[in-house]
Design a protein around this nucleic acid. Structure first.
Length: 578
DNA sequence: GCCGTTTTCGGCCCGACTGTTTTCAGTCG
């Protein structure tokens, strides 16, 4: 059984224990165990093979045994026994906003509710309202939650809501009663998928600000509206929370609501070591603790970190992936910034499935302040995308060479997004590839190979000396298509061994390779190229999402080849061929 | 169930809002 499957089972155990009303800390131990598995960077199978699970923080003796049993046999008696006590689809009820374990248990015990369908029925026919501890409002809210669940499944791509988030941010910023405002949460941490938007506002007029916010023209419905916070659903279906604080509380609230939860837990325990309690408002004396150091003055977010003996941690890094230790040691990376980009690769034109001409794409890139643009139209196997054959490709190369004569301080690099065929061979011969400035290779068909076959296929492709970089490594389309099965660490190893660059596809539907893998790639010495996979001039602006993911993956400008200026980038592209 | 320079027992983050209650439980983040 794989690591991900086992992690899901630990989550399920936690929920079943919740339904049984078990000790909350025991429940948390299972949740923590699942998370510990999710964040492993070393090969899970290898850890199991060498009995190394016990060294992982959050996995103790009992979990080692259960995880090992699952990994080796695919079964766990303890889990089976728990599962038998509840109907199999009871897990779906946890997805309904407003429903937790206690209510689900009451609904199940007293009304036999075990699925979304019969939950809806008992809400409508008045049975829920009649239960002790429930009422008409609760029934109504559950129905609303069911509606919300059907509508959006509650998840949004970062790129799809950034326009909305920035416009709300602008409106709050220009509100006459608002002094400071920050968008926090997973949006600020640049997670590829976000569930909601969080705004933190400092003001002396909380009532007015909250009233104006819930009345904003983008708001569809109001979930909660109190003295210091409000929750609304926006017209596109995303939930949006706003917290209003005093200016002296603002830095604490921003830290707290930027998260992640795990990062915050680390910060709080550091505070406790000093005898302070940390919450979303302030440092205070921790009850029953000895005050080791006086509580310092805090005016900014950086002050909060400084007080805890830490360098400022960029929001993208706040995922409890070693950033606290690095901040303590003063070893946090200087993360790449948008302004560091000097050019980009993997862009399409109307020769294949893009919408703009070579000239239009080049001008758009120049307007963004870039010095070069790498074209990579599809190759002949991608018939659906009007892929280029050898003749059309070489014509395009000639056209690019001509165009380059007309530029001053700007250059187009001629390339291709060459299909990796099912057997790992490429769509063009080495003789053709040798005439290009660079080559991206990607998988566009035969997604359903086994993990071993897919991994071998890709490694064979990137072993070709003319292949400069690997495009969208897992083929995922966020919220639409699962990644194909591939052994990412093995590809990273192969990329390191062959000197192949791995693309960070900046298209917000892809963001592939995922941020979680970049620290490993960096450690192995694999370099990154942030590419927009642009199919129009506007698509070039997706680079900003790529920069966000690169930052989240701890990358600096030195890790990303397209921060190199014209004059140096050519050598980087030629390096592998030599 | 996990963890440990307060170390093998006894902690484990905590505040806001809602709805159902007459002082609090459940949920959420």
């Amino acid at each position: 059984m794989t690591k991900d499957e086992i992690s899901d089972i630990l989550e399920n155990i936690a929920r079943l224990l919740e339904l049984k009303g078990e000790n909350p800390f025991k429940i948390r131990a299972y949740t923590n165990g699942a998370r510990a598995l999710d964040t492993l960077t070393e090969d899970f199978d290898k850890i199991v093979a060498r009995d190394g699970l016990g060294e992982v923080e959050g996995i103790g003796k009992a979990l080692v045994e259960k995880i090992t049993t699952l990994a080796r046999t695919g079964k766990l008696e303890y889990y089976e026994e728990l599962r038998e006590q509840f109907p199999p689809d009871i897990f779906t009820l946890f997805d309904v906003p407003g429903l937790g374990a206690k209510k689900i248990k009451a609904l199940y015990d007293q009304l036999g509710v075990h699925s979304l369908t019969n939950l809806e029925r008992v809400c409508r026919d008045g049975q829920v309202a009649a239960l002790p501890g429930f009422g008409a409002k609760t029934a109504e809210n559950i129905l609303k939650g069911l509606e919300q669940l059907k509508k959006s499944a509650g998840q949004f791509r970062l790129g799809d809501i950034s326009g909305l988030a920035e416009s709300l941010l602008d409106d709050l910023r220009s509100h006459p009663r608002v002094s400071l405002v920050q968008v926090a949460g997973s949006y600020r941490r640049k997670k590829p998928i976000v569930r909601d938007l969080d705004f933190i506002v400092s003001t002396r007029h909380p009532k007015i600000v909250l009233e104006d916010f819930v009345g904003h023209h983008l708001v569809d419905s109001v979930l909660a509206h109190g003295d210091t916070k409000a929750s609304v659903i926006l017209k596109n279906g995303i939930q949006c929370d706003i917290r209003v604080v005093k200016s002296e509380e603002y830095p604490f609230a921003v830290v707290y609501f930027t998260g992640s939860k795990e990062h915050n837990v680390r910060l709080r325990s550091r505070a406790l070591e000093r005898g302070w309690s940390l919450n979303e408002y302030r440092f205070s004396l921790a009850e029953g603790r000895e005050l080791k150091e006086p509580i310092p003055e805090v005016y900014t977010e950086a002050d909060v970190y400084r007080a805890l003996g830490l360098a400022f941690v960029e929001p993208e890094l706040r995922e409890d992936r070693g950033e606290i230790a690095a901040a303590e040691a003063g070893e946090l990376p200087q993360l790449i910034e948008w302004q560091n980009l000097r050019g980009t690769f993997h862009c399409h034109t109307h020769a294949s499935d893009g919408r703009a001409s070579l000239e239009e794409m080049a001008h758009a890139a120049e307007d963004l302040g870039l010095q070069y643009l790498g074209i990579a139209d599809h190759s002949k196997s991608s018939v659906q995308a009007n892929g280029l054959d050898e003749k059309r490709l070489l014509e395009q190369v000639a056209r690019i060479r001509e165009l380059n004569q007309t530029f001053d301080g700007f250059r187009i690099f001629a390339g291709t997004e060459c299909d990796i065929r099912k057997d790992g061979s490429l769509d063009f011969s080495d003789e053709i590839l040798a005439q290009l400035d660079y080559v991206v290779v990607s998988v566009h068909a035969a997604f359903s190979l086994s993990e071993v076959e897919m991994t071998d296929r890709i490694i064979k492709a990137i072993s070709n000396p003319y292949v400069t970089m690997m495009g969208h490594l897992t083929g995922r389309l966020l919220l639409t298509r699962e990644p194909y099965k591939v052994n990412v660490p093995a590809i990273i190893e192969a990329a390191a061994a062959t000197g192949t660059i791995i693309e960070l596809n900046a298209n917000p539907r892809r963001l592939d390779m995922d941020w979680q893998w970049w620290p490993l790639a960096k450690e192995k010495g694999v370099r990154c190229s942030i590419n927009p996979d642009a199919h129009s001039t506007a698509g070039l602006q997706d680079l900003i999402f790529g920069v966000g993911s690169a930052r989240k993956g701890w990358l600096t400008r030195n890790d990303v080849i397209n921060t190199l200026p014209l004059g140096q980038i050519e050598q980087e592209l030629a390096r592998k061929r030599k």
